[in-house]
Design a protein around this nucleic acid. Structure first.
Lengths: 133, 133
DNA sequence: GTAAACCTTCCAGCGTGCTGGAAGGTCAAG
DNA sequence: CTTGACCTTCCAGCACGCTGGAAGGTTTAC
C-alpha cells in the first residue's frame, strides 16, 4: 500500500503521514525497490487511532506517549496506568479551565444583552468588556 | 509614562507592550526627545481592556477587531455580542470534545486497574490500550 | 563620574500541527 | 515514447502570542 492510498484510506494527506512518521507517531515502513513507502494494512488502523485521538483533543505528544509504550511490547501495565492517569489529569485541568472561560463568557454575554448600544457613548470604552476584569 | 511603568501598571512585560503596538492593538505613543515611548494614562486602561479580553479567551485578532471598531467611534456592542456568542460556541464545543475524551480515558483507566499485569503475556500487546485502538 | 537600570531597534526562535513548493525519480496508460 | 500522476527529499513558512538576545543610546542614583 503506497502513501497516497493510505492517505485516502485514513482521510489524511500524504504530507501529514510523512510528518507523523517524522514525528515518531508512525513507524517507518519498508520501501519498494524504487524507494516508495510500502505500508501494511495495519498502518490504516494506527492512523485511524491517531486521527481519532487527535480529534478528541490529545496532543501529538500525548498520542506518541501512548503509542510508544504500546509498541514496546512489554507489559508495562503500571506505566500505562500512570500514563492514563496523567492524561486524565491534563484533560480534566483543561476542562476546568474552559469551564471558567465559559462562565466568564456567559457573564459577558448577559451584560452584552443588557447594555443599550446607544449607551456606549462616542468616546467611551465599551462597557461590556471593560467592566469584566 | 514610560514603557516600564506602563508594563508594571498593566501587569505585562515591556516586550509584550511593544508587540501589541506592532500588532495594531495599541497605537504608537509620542516619543520623548530621546526616542522613548511616552504613554498617556489612558494607555493603561486600554491595556487592561486587552488583558481582560484576552483572559476571557478572545484572540488578539478578535480584540483588535473590537478595538478597531471602538476607535472608529462606533458602538461595538452588537459586534461584541456576536463575537462573544461565537466564542462561547467554540468553547462549549471544545468542552464537549474533552468530556468525550475524559470518558474514554476513564474507561481505559478502569480497564487498566482490572487487568492483572501478569496477564499481558510476553509477546502480546498490552491489553489496556490495544482494545482502544 | 560611573555604574546600573532603563530604553531603543532588529532579528531569531519557541512549540504545535501541519502545508506548500522545488527538484528530481518512477510508474501506468495511450 | 511521452504524458501525467505519483513518489522521494529537503527547505520554508503559516498562525499564535509572545520571549530572548545583541548592540547600542539614555537616565538615574550614589
Amino acid at each position: 500500500m503506497r502513501i497516497g492510498t493510505l492517505a485516502a484510506a485514513a482521510g489524511l494527506s500524504a504530507k501529514t503521514i510523512r510528518f507523523y512518521e517524522q514525528a515518531g507517531l508512525l513507524p517507518a515502513p519498508p520501501r519498494t525497490a524504487a524507494g516508495y513507502r510500502d505500508y501494511p494494512a495495519e498502518a490504516a488502523d494506527r492512523l485511524a487511532f491517531i486521527r481519532d485521538a487527535a480529534a478528541a483533543g490529545l496532543s501529538l505528544a500525548e498520542i506518541r506517549g501512548v503509542l510508544t509504550i504500546r509498541d514496546a511490547r512489554q507489559p508495562p501495565c503500571r506505566h500505562v496506568t500512570t500514563l492514563i492517569e496523567t492524561h486524565l489529569e491534563h484533560v480534566e485541568q483543561r476542562i476546568a479551565d474552559l469551564l471558567i472561560t465559559r462562565t466568564a463568557l456567559q457573564g459577558l454575554h448577559r451584560r452584552a444583552r443588557a447594555v443599550d448600544p446607544a449607551d456606549c457613548g462616542p468616546e467611551g470604552i465599551c462597557r461590556i468588556l471593560t467592566t469584566t476584569a
